[in-house]
Design a protein around this nucleic acid. Structure first.
Lengths: 214, 214, 214, 214
DNA sequence: CATGAATGAGGATTCATTCAT
DNA sequence: TATGAATGAATCCTCATTCAT
């Protein structure tokens, strides 16, 4: 595996696309789409400009590939988490498992992706639509369904599920964006764990019916 | 040829910067900083490119002016809201007044501004720092102080105030960003009022101590 | 009018398009469309690359403009020559006036234009169509009509007019192309006048009926 | 895996250069040298880009090879035609045999070659020189010699032989170029045979002395 | 001999910025 | 003060050429 000869280039057709996408994700996320130079993307991926065009027809298509490829694992992660609950599970338990899942989700690349999509939605309407349909609707159904279930089972106070999703996910989204945008300038630094803990306390108290409740 | 109203030119001259800033705000917000052409900014402001350079030394300074000028009224609005509470006011009342203020705040240009700053923070570190110090710290102090006060007065459950601010502001931030980013692709549309209402219910339930509480 | 100060650039909106077209004509003709660099076109026109784009949206449109603008005066020249004959004029006189017109036509930019259109017709189908319809059809009608007239009046031998046009124009076309393509490598140089003279002799002898003819 | 016919590879190897040259000829002719991509040449020849470089050091040399290889058979064809005449043959008979040869010559690849050389002469001076010296001079000597002979034998009117060659070959050249350039856009289509017939009539009438001639 | 992934110089195009008017 | 023609550096993209396989 040691590269004895420093050859001018390597032939690595299989690995290239992912390497380029990763590099592009980093730069698009840091600087935005327009402000990212393809030269820099290529350099970060360890190839030259021309190679990028071997795998993606142009910068816009590279962007779309970046979003699509980066979204997939996040969707999968989310659905996996949801699949764990059985019929017997108490709704409050599901809610708690969501709060326990939040920290790692907030620390994942999902935050950078969210920032990127927010920043470029205006220039890439089909990416925006794709994001809404594939990511947000799905998350809404997942979280909304869980809240609906809790209400129907008499475990939760009767609130508007769709709105509750925004209340539930909002703090997580803000924290994600915060981390990739402002965290460097903040002092003292926030604690993601503490935020999730507090969110949990408030929601358990505000959403879950207690025995004495009417 | 006789200039019947010489003051009109005068007034125009004074109005120019704001007109240009407004146009730039619109375009920067829609397309991002890099993807916005100065030609388009000028056209939207009803002037020509050259005129922009009469008031702003370059595109970057125009951007900074846009952020600064747009931030100010929002800060003022926020502080005005907070100034209304007196010592006698119950903390829950202050909390409720915040929730009542949210819908108009969410509908204000603050959402577009937030999106813009998030998108460009990586390219404008001093804007990011300025935003954190002038806007976020201030909001945190305001909201955090209010929560702290409630806890100290025994009106709120003892939670981490800094984290609670994220929980409180997160849903508002998400809704603001949603409106300027994805609302066009969403169906059925969300209701800002309903979200604020739900947020209020959950928070009152989760944060405010009831008589029987330990 | 004397340019006392060697200013960085002149503002010459009116004159620019023609200057650029002339420069482009020269280079496209010498090197072909693809092999001509816009930088060189601009330099030859005394402007910079950016200026070219002020007047033409891209290289292809510049090419089309070059062809269109260069064709027009040639068409006009041709039609003017034809308009001189009256009903009373003998067909042989018209024929002679054409041969007398040939040398100056062959020396005009029409030759370079013809070469350019031949070379690029494959890449610019609409230019090819435009050339056939606007230039060639017109020339064919003009020359063909003249021959037809001579035949009908009994002045010429009965030949196929459309074919005769090729026979008549062929030598002129070849000489035009020769001049802009091979003349530099030829020794001894050809004499355009002598070719036209010879053409005249052969055609007068071969086309015009003599008294004794059947 | 056993190569049943090892000779097929061998034969392929020998056939390659011609296949590549043919493909290049087609594309260079259609699009011009600069606008033809080596990728396309290779694809049309049924090989990959790398293989082209096995046989030709670079694109320019491929071009030169294309011209050289394509010219040779045309020269041969021409000389074969000329070799048929003996001392006894009447000059008018030779002239007629030339006109009878024209249609097949016009339909041959010579037209495309002529177009290509005209288009690229400016970029390939040595090709232009080669063409003038090897092709044109030869043709001029052949045709010019024939006319000279006719004049000396008193069979033709005394015209300038060099000029007469242009008159004789011009219509053929124009028709050749026409076919490869504009024929697709022309309506009604021209008849090559009719043009040659008309050319023959005019030239016999204009060049050949009749008994009664002074 | 043949391939095709990778290269990188070169060229079309854009656009922030300048400046004569 | 305002204009907009002109600039030229920066950037996307192409494609002839190389070379590991």
């Amino acid at each position: 595996m040691a590269q004895s000869a420093p050859t001018r280039w390597q032939r690595r057709k299989e690995a290239r696309p992912k390497e380029i996408i990763d590099a592009a994700f980093t730069l698009f996320t840091e600087r935005g789409f327009s402000a990212s130079r393809l030269d820099e993307v290529a350099a970060l991926a360890g190839v030259t400009k021309g190679t990028v065009y071997l795998y993606f027809p142009n910068k816009e298509e590279l962007f779309k590939a970046v979003v699509r490829e980066t979204i997939l694992p996040n969707i999968a992660q989310f659905e996996a988490m949801a699949a764990q609950a059985s019929d017997a599970t108490a709704s409050v338990e599901i809610l708690l498992s969501i709060f326990r899942f939040f920290p790692q989700f907030i620390a994942s690349p999902a935050g950078a992706l969210l920032k990127l999509v927010i920043a470029e939605a205006g220039n890439f309407p089909d990416i925006a639509r794709f994001f809404v349909e594939e990511v947000i609707q799905r998350a809404r159904q997942l979280l909304g369904g869980m809240i609906q279930r809790g209400i129907e089972r008499g475990e939760f106070h009767p609130v508007d599920p769709a709105s509750a999703v925004f209340c539930l996910f909002g703090p997580a989204a803000l924290t994600m964006l915060w981390r990739v945008t402002f965290a460097a300038y903040d002092d003292p630094a926030i604690s993601v764990d503490r935020i999730c803990q507090t969110l949990s306390e408030i929601f358990i108290g505000g959403l879950v019916r207690r025995d004495g409740d009417a």
